[in-house]
Nucleic acid binder design. Structure first.
Lengths: 223, 223
DNA sequence: CGGAATCCTCTTCGATACTG
DNA sequence: CAGTATCGAAGAGGATTCCG
């Protein structure tokens, strides 16, 4: 039962001792999207053994990366969420997200895809400079799954569900949303085809496009 | 022989399909320090099975993350080094290094430690703002292992071996270097004790301390 | 000696079945 | 809904051997 360790006095190795196991960083990704129930996690991590999920959750709680929280009575359920320490892993996830774009390829029906994952992509693409002075929210409903992004004071907030008074709302099917996101289809075509809809202020749409640029390299320096 | 995959259309999952296996990110860390021979890698990754190292190297070459290069005749050996794509993983490694600092604890003789790993720590602590206008090099020789950092045009370059005309040179034993780095011993004490030596310009030492701050949070936003 | 392939034991993974 | 229990298959970790 003793945890396997790299046994190195190196902060990279120590970090990987805690979050380097298979599935663990994807589990962090899931919780970056928002608090999740056990079954939500199973759903967002197709293929994980339930025993492994349970043991990883236990370990991450022990390491103060995530926390177990009971929802108030009407909901009567428990959720897992990132602690402050766990939120500190966001740069790692974002770093992987940037790097992984090149490995992504074209949308493939064989691969699992959840609308929520778009939240992570949005957080990765967020351009704080372009967001300066903007104060508005954007609503998405993809495949019936609602999520949103709000920009205020140059900062980004995201969540699942519906947001008040969005400046723009995008409603789309999985296929059309992915086709547009991957650049396979022009937004105009998708709009004409019908299962892709944009409501709201056209100018706000332009701002959103600048704040979440489609394919730039990470803001870090280039080699 | 088919590679295990998460089978998700998500750039984080795709990235982890390539570099998420056990040992792989530590292998990238090793190559961030500089080009390495097979046996150097074995040495920097104590505990890795030679078969696993070989198979990971093969896969990473295939994925264009690293490259195999033959050294010119006198050396008559081959080294592995990061490709441009592989260097793109530096933000991930640095992100893990920042996060792992909290998990690091006190130096422990039970844990493996290599002087070279300090190069990664230096790269993680580099403060580009403090480096503005500085053009000088710093030499380290820890436990007999030489490595250096050079700051120029607000950018950082690092490497193994000796650098020309360093502004500061730090020479120390493993124990005293770690004790000072971990904040257990004040530099003055270590200097007095004798197995820690600093040569060069005291003002440059002050600049180096500002450029590689000892324990700040990552420059990313805080939660 | 550097760069692996082989063998063998042990742990972890993945899938399913089962329980409070 | 939130987990345990179980079990075959795959990967990890050593040691040793092989090849140039």
């Amino acid at each position: 039962m003793a945890k396997r360790s790299y046994n190195q006095y190196c902060s990279v190795a120590r970090a990987l001792d805690v979050v380097g196991d298979r599935w663990t960083l994807l589990l962090i990704r899931e919780l970056m999207i928002g608090p999740r129930r056990y079954t939500d996690l199973i759903d967002g991590l197709p293929g994980i053994g339930t025993n492994h999920l349970a043991s990883r959750l236990r370990r991450l709680v022990a390491a103060d990366v995530i926390r177990r929280r009971a929802l108030p009575p009407p909901a009567a359920s428990t959720v897992y969420e990132l602690t402050r320490s766990g939120r500190g892993l966001e740069p790692v996830i974002i770093g992987l997200a940037h790097w992984g774009v090149d490995q992504l390829g074209a949308p493939d029906a064989e691969l699992a895809w959840r609308p929520d994952w778009t939240v992570v992509a949005l957080r990765g693409r967020f351009d704080a400079t372009a967001a300066r002075g903007v104060d508005e929210a954007y609503q998405f409903v993809i495949d019936g799954q609602p999520f949103w992004a709000r920009v205020r004071n140059g900062e980004l907030d995201t969540g699942l569900g519906h947001v008040d008074a969005p400046a723009v709302a995008v409603t789309a099917s999985r296929a059309s949303f992915l086709a547009v996101a991957a650049g396979e289809v022009q937004p105009e075509q998708a709009l004409a085809a019908g299962d892709y809809r944009i409501d709201g202020d056209p100018e706000a749409l332009g701002r959103a496009a600048a704040i979440f640029p489609n394919s730039t390299d990470p803001p870090e320096k280039r080699p």
